[in-house]
Design a protein around this nucleic acid. Structure first.
Lengths: 210, 210
DNA sequence: CAAGTTAGATAGCAAGCACTCACTATCTAT
DNA sequence: ATAGATAGTGAGTGCTTGCTATCTAACTTG
């Protein structure tokens, strides 16, 4: 209580702490209030710091948003890697992977990423600033998928299947207007995921698939 | 030149004219500037009218946006109907349909619709106002597809396939950051569309498909 | 401990926003 | 032709925005 005075933190710790709080606050603001309503004031209120603190560490609002994008991009890759990790044999296995992928795509991190991508479409500066992170993420997704599924799908088909699956799940997330999009998938979506799983498994049936 | 004085229009004509100009201007503003930058001033500038004219016909900005949504929704249904109209037999036929569907999804009308849907996710009022148009559009899409493909796909699979295709194309449109998204499809996307076409054709191969 | 540097708080500013209001122009009905 | 209604104008209002300037608090270094 005496020697470990709680108000004693090194400058780097303070800095890192508030930056982390700002990034997390930006993620929550983006997911539950949208891009336009993610004002610097709102982020500061959610993070519990003043506006001066924000503009000390980020020269502009866009810089904060770009930093947030890179922050969530790494999380997204990790979530994808964890999801696809299990080995698949039967159609049911693939369905399970797709279901997990769906919840991953609906996570706040992915929601944030999507929100920023949409905003970038109308803002050339943001688009340019987001480009490297975007290409890096896409490449990492493809590499991860190739590592784990290379014996199942050939190069061309891998990219195509990945494009179908993630774009479909993204489209689903975009058009999900429910307050809680993490709810049950719904019959149509479940059937759609099964069709995709059957497509994946039957693409190369010469192996010992069921 | 004399009897048809160009400055002689009935009130209804004037009204309809400026309303149409405002709706069209809103569409172009939304597609090429995004939701946030579609201010009343920007729309009025694009339409060539004053702000007072806008607020005479639409009590609020949101009313203008909702009217625009309903305006493009009908266009979207028509474009979909025209696209799916041709009868399909071979895989190549389905690929052609999907390609046309892709360009339809990338059209300004559909882009506008998507922009409004995304904005509605963060705005409860807009979401509620858009709900009827949204349900009507979805129902019409499904009905149209059922009319034309009912002999090819059974009820459950119809919705699932439709969900896969339109969500994938929507996701593709969302993540297309190019200034001109109507450009060539790209190898991966072409392969993806072919895979989907094969899936559709092989779903019920008992008929006289190739 | 003192001087210097970094972190954070607060008040305020110019610009842009949705929207209003007093007014003019145009059309319609008597 | 005249009166009343509708369409359209453009300056103005209050509010929010991203960002800055000024200041205090906390940490680091000699």
């Amino acid at each position: 209580m005496i020697e470990t005075s709680p108000a004693r933190r090194t400058q780097a710790e303070r800095r890192e702490g508030t930056i982390g709080a700002l990034l997390d606050a930006t993620v929550t603001c983006l997911t539950e209030r949208g891009y336009a309503a993610t004002s610097t004031a709102a982020v500061c209120a959610a993070a519990g710091v003043s506006q001066g603190a924000l503009f000390r560490h980020f020269p502009t609002r866009q810089a904060l948003l770009v930093a947030t994008a890179e922050h969530v991009a790494t999380r997204n890759v990790e979530a994808f890697r964890a999801t696809v990790g299990s080995d698949v044999e039967t159609v049911d296995d693939v369905v399970a992977v797709l279901s997990h992928l769906r919840t991953a795509v609906l996570s706040p991190a992915n929601q944030t990423w999507r929100e920023l991508l949409v905003a970038a479409r109308a803002d050339a500066d943001l688009r340019a600033a987001l480009l490297p992170a975007r290409e890096s993420l896409q490449a990492q997704l493809l590499d991860t998928a190739a590592d784990l599924w290379v014996d199942r799908l050939r190069g061309d088909d891998l990219g195509a299947v990945l494009s179908i699956v993630v774009n479909m799940l993204d489209g689903l997330a975009f058009s999900a207007l429910d307050p809680d999009p993490t709810a049950a998938p719904g019959r149509t979506v479940e059937r759609a995921l099964r069709l995709l799983a059957e497509m994946v498994v039957h693409l190369y049936p010469q192996q010992e698939n069921r």
